[in-house]
Design a protein around this nucleic acid. Sequence first.
DNA 1: CGGGTCTAGAGG
DNA 2: CTCTAGACCCGG
Length: 747
Amino acid sequence: MKDSHSNIIEVAVPLPLDTTFHYRVPPELRGAAAPGRRVLVPFGRRTVTGYILGFGTDEGRELRTIVDLLDEAPLFTLRELELYRWAASYYLHPLGEVIKAALPAGINIQSRRGSTGHSGGELTGGRSVRTETVYRAAAGAMERPAPRGKGAQLLAHLRQAGETTTATLRELFGDCASPLRRLRELDLVESEAREVYRDPFREEAVEPDSPLPLNAGQAAALGQIASALDAGRFAPFLLLGVTGSGKTEVYLQAIARVVAQGQTALVLVPEIALTPQLVNRFRRRFQCGIAVLHSGLSDGERYDEWRRIRRGEATIVIGARSAIFAPLERLGMIVVDEEHESSYKQGEGFRYNARDLALVRGKIAGASVILGTATPQVTTWHAAASGKLTLLELPERVNGMPLPPAELLDARGQRGETLLSPLAAAVADNLDRSGQTLLFLNRRGFATWLTCEECGHVLRCPNCAVTLTYHQRKNRHICHYCDYAIPAPSVCPGCGSGQVTLLGLGTEQVEMRMRERFPEARVERMDRDTTAGKGGHARILRRVAERKTDILIGTQMVAKGHDFPGITLVGILSVESSLNIPDYRSGERTFQLVTQLIGRAGRGENPGRVLIQTLTPEHYALTHAVAGDIEGFYATELAFRRDAGYPPFTYLAVFYLTGTSPSATEAESDRLAAHLRDLRAEQGGRIEILGPVAAPLAKLRGRFRWQILLKAPNRSALHRLLLRNQRTYAPSSGIRLHVDVDPVDLM
DNA sequence: CGGGTCTAGAGG
DNA sequence: CTCTAGACCCGG
């Protein structure tokens, strides 16, 4: 059997199967079959698209023959396949589905139960290349008699302007389809179909700019990155810098060096931060091709951007999570901006973390990887402290302005007050001085729960173990986990008493109270309920930027990505909702949130101030955030985690089971937990199984979800158990198992 | 995943 | 005895 032109190929199919399949290639396609190309293969009684992984040998089994070979060139390289294989094994997800997720959506062909009822069924799907028609005057057409009227105008234009598209001709001459047809018949013009890209940002040209001068911290950081680039080996960095410390300028100048070396760069940003402003900053700086990948693109636009990248027409790719799979070759650098952001995690299907894959891809490619943030993940900090990442610090803000002073207000014994008096006074004072105020509360809706004074009944979601939040505008009680909703009852559903009370403050109620209290102020609310629909964010942000808003009330989304230069007062109404989440990361999350909010204030000429109402003013996450003491926070958090046996000192995986009925999903989670306990006993390892966890049964898009946590003292013990489980445990039908491995020790 | 087959329970 | 919903099994 010849190895490189074998007639047997190994194929991965995008289905939840943990095996690959072998097929025979007919002689006429033999030389063309190559890893990375797709094939149409008979699969059971269907025809599906698969991916060629490589060549195989005859194992004596009866093999079926491929139906067709797709793609003129491979869609992925062997290096990319190495990344896919790593991800499939690490996230315990079928390789075919990993490849499908890595390639642009909608390109695969599947057979359907065809209504026309042909034997193979009809083939559907496949993303097409868009073409446009261009016209040009035919060579040597001068002698022939010229037509009259519109035809003459068109011909004159084409002789002068050369090739012109249908769209341009229509713009210039109106509808001209029939004269053009006539000209073609007379052989006076010729036409050609040309491939075009659906350009997601066909914007007007931007003014080029040049590199900004760097401060000492930036220059030192850039110097270290530059020497790693010159060495041309994998080098991971943690770039630590507060909001406004000029991380982006460091990325830009480092990437300039990468481009100058003839290499390419990949920039990952959280979805929400992928604004035209950021992209334009890159477009102003670089003349080379820039491709942008984000969730707002249509399948066609995404496919076109992908093809531009694959053909080497883009040198820099900027994108959200899924851009980690962008088909760049000669990759010199990967930037992961705001590396702590949870939006790098894909939470459905193939559950990967693009921040982690960035390190793996960087290692495979021999590239530098920069993780940039003011508030790293605790695991990232630990990796830097133990020398696995090189720490680069940007200690000061570029404009020299210090971070605004922050203070904690003790809210104990003052329940029922929306704003404590120092914060209320600060808002009034800020209004007097025409400053803008940001009030943060991480809870949308009017009130968090309804309780009965008589019998103590609390409204809860029947699917999820959480209370229903009252929304005044809809007059409904809604589950924020699964969107289950009921109309607001007038009496207690438990005992019929009329004595029901709404408790727990939400943004909707804060908005109402602020309008009552400051009737002259222009109040806006920014949360999922007010930003629904496209352009919802932009509308609110524009009014804030134009100073048409005095008080902005917002949830989580105001802490991320957006710049509010006019904000001179930040009030945090409660951090308890973030602090009291029963998750070992709640301290970390709260520290990140508060630190990011402090960075939102005083980006202008006034440093502003930050006031935080809390019931736990001694909590280390808050005291360190308020003091700007990053080292102190991480030291305390790591000591706590070491004692409690949490990551990064133990390793953790989360199993998610989803099914369509709550009882079946719950029963399955018991079965899985029992199975895992058996495996643990058999292995004799020190692996701890937490669960099935009571709270998180949640309905997501019609499916119920249950989770189980696994803790292990090291990664290999955890992975041995996970792999063993994957081989020995089969979920019952209708139930799917997903695995989130968190966190990781990749190096 | 999708579809074929096998099976238990309800209905006639 | 027939019909059907759901479990289960397989795909090269």
